[in-house]
Nucleic acid binder design. Structure first.
Length: 198
DNA sequence: ACATTAAATTTAA
DNA sequence: TTAAATTTAATGT
């Protein structure tokens, strides 16, 4: 949990429910709120000129949605779409700012969180520049596993569909499927009931 | 080595 | 019971 729910509520945050497919904000809109996922999952995406989807991030419980936009005066570069129904805590930008002023500890937590995200973003970009599909896919898997505590092999049940992995790596679903099967042969990951364990 | 297209099958909403 | 996701195969770049 990035910021405790009690603290957010005390500054006027409100719970909002979303269904699968709902849009929290669109690309080009001006950020007005701080959002924190309480339940469900949200993807940040962008469609390039061919109409191909690029997924920038998938956010789950405890994570905030594009919080970096609250510190600068820019428009959203991505859409936020709900992929698993749930609840989001919403706090207007002004109240968020006051909360930070009055709670330096929270401000520091956000710094750490942002730094960590940026660090893994570097790794993702490096991996995605690779010519090899397996390197790109492993980059995504490592990135997501970095959120889990257990680092032992095959302990992490990857919460992504093949299509989502494809949209994050810029590969085709079919390539993702073949590459994942090769990685299983090489004992890099395991597949049980179609789910990937890494 | 990967993309594209098409078609079949499995799974989830 | 439709829609979405996964898989295999054939063919193209």
């Amino acid at each position: 949990m990035l910021i405790s729910e009690e603290l957010l509520l005390s500054y006027g945050a409100e719970y909002e429910n979303f269904d699968r497919g709902d849009i929290i904000f669109d690309e080009g809109q001006t950020p007005k709120n701080y959002y924190q996922v309480v339940k469900g999952r949200i993807k940040l995406n962008h469609y390039n000129d061919d109409g191909k989807e690029l997924i920038l991030a998938i956010l789950e419980r405890g994570l905030s949605v594009c919080e970096l936009l609250l510190f600068i005066d820019k428009k959203y570069p991505v859409n936020a779409v709900v992929i698993e129904a749930g609840t989001v805590l919403t706090l207007p930008k002004a109240a968020f700012s006051i909360m930070l002023d009055e709670n330096p500890g929270v401000s520091k937590d956000i710094n750490i969180f942002l730094s960590e995200r940026l660090y893994y973003k570097y790794l993702m970009v490096e991996n995605n520049a690779s010519l090899y599909a397996d390197v790109r896919i492993k980059g995504v898997l490592d990135y997501h596993k970095s959120f889990s505590k257990d680092h032992s092999p095959f302990s992490f049940k990857v919460p992504l569909t093949r299509q989502q992995i494809a949209a994050m790596t810029g590969l085709r679903v079919e390539t993702v499927i073949r590459t994942i099967k090769n990685l299983e042969k090489k004992d890099v990951l395991k597949i049980r009931d179609r789910r990937i364990y890494y």
